[in-house]
Simulated scan of single mutants.
Amino acid sequence: MRAGNLDKTIRIDRYDTGGVDDYGTPTPGFAALATLRAQVVQSSTEEFVEHGATDQTVIIFRCRYLDGVTNADRVHFDGGYFNIKEIKEIQRRKGLELRCIRAVNQ
């Protein structure tokens, strides 16, 4: 993986339940886990027929290895949020390939 190919910036967010507002009410939400340089390997819009036709944006990111990334995390890229559907390790802890689908509710 060459550094020159990592020309995009992504942020990996993790769900966090630890926040509390002024009234003592828990405020769950996503918190930034890491900001990484990444390469967009593939970006496409596919049409799926589930309860009517819907378009889903599928995007694959390739980045340096980060320990602990799971399917429960999400990626923030180019003003949108993408749910991680699959994580593939590249070689032995050299990098990650994140297969993501654009989140419907951001």
Results as ranks from 00 to 15, higher is better:
Arg2Met: 09
Arg2Val: 07
Arg2Cys: 05
Asn5Leu: 04
Asn5Asp: 10
Asn5Tyr: 01
Leu6Val: 05
Asp7Pro: 00
Lys8Asn: 10
Thr9His: 01
Ile10Tyr: 00
Arg11Met: 10
Arg11Asn: 11
Arg11Tyr: 04
Ile12Phe: 02
Ile12Tyr: 03
Ile12Ser: 03
Ile12Pro: 02
Ile12Cys: 03
Asp13Met: 04
Arg14Val: 02
Arg14Ile: 00
Asp16Met: 00
Thr17Asn: 12
Thr17Met: 08
Thr17Leu: 09
Gly18Pro: 06
Gly18Ser: 15
Gly18Gln: 09
Gly19Met: 01
Gly19Phe: 00
Asp22Val: 04
Asp22Lys: 04
Gly24Cys: 07
Thr25Glu: 04
Thr27Pro: 01
Pro28Lys: 00
Pro28Cys: 03
Gly29Tyr: 01
Gly29Pro: 06
Gly29Trp: 00
Gly29Leu: 03
Gly29Val: 04
Ala32Lys: 07
Ala32Trp: 00
Ala32Leu: 10
Ala34Cys: 09
Thr35Asn: 04
Thr35Ile: 04
Arg37Ala: 14
Ala38Trp: 00
Val40Pro: 03
Val40Ile: 11
Val41Cys: 04
Ser43Ile: 04
Ser43Gly: 11
Ser44Leu: 06
Thr45Glu: 15
Glu47His: 01
Glu47Gly: 06
Glu47Leu: 05
Phe48Val: 15
Phe48Asp: 12
Val49His: 06
Val49Thr: 11
His51Leu: 13
His51Pro: 04
Gly52Asp: 08
Ala53Ile: 12
Gln56Leu: 10
Gln56Asn: 11
Gln56Gly: 07
Thr57Asp: 12
Thr57Met: 05
Val58Trp: 04
Val58Gln: 14
Ile59Thr: 12
Ile59Met: 06
Ile60Phe: 02
Ile60Asn: 11
Ile60Cys: 09
Phe61Gln: 07
Phe61Leu: 10
Phe61Pro: 04
Arg62Ser: 15
Cys63Phe: 02
Arg64Asn: 13
Arg64Phe: 08
Tyr65Leu: 14
Tyr65Asn: 14
Leu66Phe: 09
Asp67Asn: 14
Asp67Glu: 15
Asp67Pro: 01
Asp67Leu: 13
Val69Lys: 03
Thr70Ala: 13
Thr70Asp: 12
Asn71His: 10
Asn71Ala: 12
Asn71Trp: 02
Asn71Ile: 11
Asp73Cys: 13
Asp73Ile: 07
Arg74Thr: 12
Val75Pro: 02
Val75Glu: 10
Val75Ala: 08
His76Ser: 15
Phe77Gly: 02
Phe77Pro: 01
Asp78Pro: 10
Gly79His: 12
Gly80Cys: 13
Gly80His: 13
Tyr81Phe: 15
Tyr81Val: 13
Phe82Cys: 05
Phe82Ala: 05
Ile84Trp: 02
Lys85Ser: 13
Glu86Trp: 02
Glu86Asp: 10
Ile87Cys: 14
Lys88Val: 08
Lys88Gly: 06
Glu89Val: 15
Ile90Ser: 13
Gln91Met: 15
Arg92Ser: 13
Arg93Phe: 05
Lys94Asp: 15
Lys94Pro: 02
Lys94Ser: 14
Gly95Phe: 05
Gly95Leu: 06
Gly95Ser: 09
Gly95Thr: 09
Glu97Trp: 04
Leu98Ala: 07
Leu98His: 06
Leu98Phe: 08
Arg99Phe: 13
Arg99Cys: 09
Cys100Val: 07
Ala103Phe: 01
Val104Leu: 14
Asn105Cys: 05
Gln106Asp: 14
